[in-house]
Design a protein around this nucleic acid. Structure first.
Lengths: 199, 199
DNA sequence: CCCTTAGTTGATCGCTCGTCCAAGTAGTAT
DNA sequence: ATACTACTTGGACGAGCGATCAACTAAGGG
């Protein structure tokens, strides 16, 4: 019983996610969120609690969708090296065409908030750990398939995490596709076996 | 004639630089700056104009000192590869011990402000271009000395820029020295000739 | 058909922000 | 000494922030 919601909570959360993603936490006012979500302040607080809780919800949504989808490419590919190539190819695409031209919500928020919010800092670290683990898995499979040069392997995962974070930063300067592609290609070239098996 | 300044402007600018570096632009209030610099708001506005101008001055100071000093290592070294090693070694040191545990002022500010301040965005791009050019120079010298694997060269400069930006992000999560060192080592290992000439 | 309940509305609160300015103070020049 | 000038002081201003709440509205149950 009682009045039913006039808006879709998940849809509104998606709008809030995009707004935080574009502008950052501090620079996004409740008023701006209300305008973007097309609801009133009272409804925001009734549905999400407060600004910080709304942000955390948006961050979780990001991790469960945008981020999980990207990592999935690493595991789905037929080979470790192909998974890495797929991952970076779609990263570059999204940075040129899609929402990743705003960078990465985790990277942006980490830079802005890690120093003053330990709870968020823990979420960011866990996110990076997941990424690192997925890279390590793909590298292990690539190594087993003889796709890597001597010395490269799962221990190269931290480098790939750093490269992705760096690309997330550079994406905000709207570099051309060529620049982003060159970064991804150079990174993988430094890991790959000198003489590819098939291609 | 007239009353003389009771504080050193450059010294105060240095304090403001550190404050912006630690907390970011928005999160640093004039009040906080006044407390850190140990002067009153009126003196800040008399000496620097306004918050934005003070920030730009701090950014220029950063580029002229912290950043220039780092890039200098690339050019001073006896060989290209040694320059790169020096650069990353000191980067890692400063991220573990020094002020770079706050990341990089340019990286932090780029993530926070690029989308809403075109003038600052131009400064950030120029900064990245300088870094890229310096890397390219070191890589060219390394290539001439036969220190690089086939395929690596000045065209790998964008990758190194991305790696540094990524490390700047990761520095904020206070990773151990081992992690940072591993990233730097992996990046250079991917560029170096398989069989080193001397060592 | 009305009572209960849940959601919406939009004005409003206290607070902090960046900025300003009148009054006070410490130097120099004559 | 006195006039002049530059800098410092610290309270005050309007604006915008995150958050609240009483009044209103719409849905279901008896």
């Amino acid at each position: 019983m009682g009045r039913t919601r006039t808006f879709d909570v998940d849809e509104a959360l998606g709008v809030a996610l995009d707004t935080f993603w574009q502008r950052g936490y501090d620079a996004t006012s409740i008023q701006a969120l209300c305008q973007a979500m097309d609801i009133q302040p009272g409804s925001v607080y009734a549905a999400f609690g407060n600004k910080h809780a709304l942000f955390v919800a948006a961050l979780r949504s990001y991790a469960a969708t945008v981020s999980a989808e990207a990592v999935e490419r690493l595991n789905v590919a037929p080979s470790g090296m192909q998974g890495l190539r797929d991952y970076f190819a779609h990263l570059v695409d999204a940075m040129v065409d899609g929402r990743r031209r705003w960078g990465c919500l985790v990277t942006n928020s980490l830079v802005e908030l890690t120093d003053r919010d330990p709870a968020l800092a823990a979420m960011f670290e866990q996110h990076l750990a997941t990424l690192r683990t997925s890279f390590a898995g793909a590298l292990t499979r690539a190594r087993a398939a003889g796709e890597l040069r001597a010395g490269a392997g799962p221990e190269s995962a931290p480098l790939l995490v750093a490269v992705v974070q760096g690309m997330n930063v550079l994406a905000k300067t709207t570099p051309g596709r060529a620049t982003l592609q060159s970064i991804a290609d150079s990174a993988l070239a430094g890991l790959a076996a000198e003489a590819p098996a098939s291609v």
